[in-house]
Design a protein around this nucleic acid. Sequence first.
DNA 1: TCCTTTAGTATACTTTTGTATACTACATGT
DNA 2: ACATGTAGTATACAAAAGTATACTAAAGGA
Lengths: 113, 113
Amino acid sequence: MSHTVYDCSEGCPVEATLALIGGKWKGVILFHLLSDTIRFNELRRLMPGVTQRMLTKQLRELEADQLIVRKVYPEVPPRVEYSMADYGLTLAPIITALQKWGTEHLKKVKQEA
Amino acid sequence: MSHTVYDCSEGCPVEATLALIGGKWKGVILFHLLSDTIRFNELRRLMPGVTQRMLTKQLRELEADQLIVRKVYPEVPPRVEYSMADYGLTLAPIITALQKWGTEHLKKVKQEA
DNA sequence: TCCTTTAGTATACTTTTGTATACTACATGT
DNA sequence: ACATGTAGTATACAAAAGTATACTAAAGGA
């Protein structure tokens, strides 16, 4: 029973990580923020599929998990910039691995279609 | 605008990957199958949090995506073994990266508590 | 003066995800 | 004779995720 070397019953690491980045949009948000600081509506334009409400929600959750930083400028019209937090940067290898695999996968899917 | 180097609007790779492994249990299933072929009820015991119905559902989805293989033995009592498909094995770097990060993360969380 | 833009919030709704419970067939063990 | 284990399915329900629409304030431009 070599697979019992790791017991997932209490606090599974894989599950823990996916709980933070496994949402439908979180990975994509992090991916974009890895390359730049981005304003709220800029992100919306980069991710046309997500609604404003969901984007807000996901961003707040990422902020609560200390993966990103939300900086509000007291201006009118309002300006809010999102960027990676130090802790979020440690996810970089995972995000780029997801992107790399996904790129190949999409290529494969397109071929089959 | 350095972040526009990659446009996520049509077929985002990060999103595509998370669509396959981003479920609450899929990552954990794949993680276990990486180390061994596992029977259905063995998996249940390894993942006490998941219900039978959900486990079945997730396994069927992973199978449909060609990431795992489901082998039924015509015996009584029934025997069904799950193992990684070749395509699923290409996810190995991602799964281990998730596990590695999650381990550190859980350590951090425990410290803070 | 009106339209646009910003970064949201509020409300109501649908869909997906997940839970709980009960049920199956047949072989084996007690 | 009766309980146990296998790999599920069926049904009903609760919770989470996601959608659509309308609304806000105050600055700047036409």
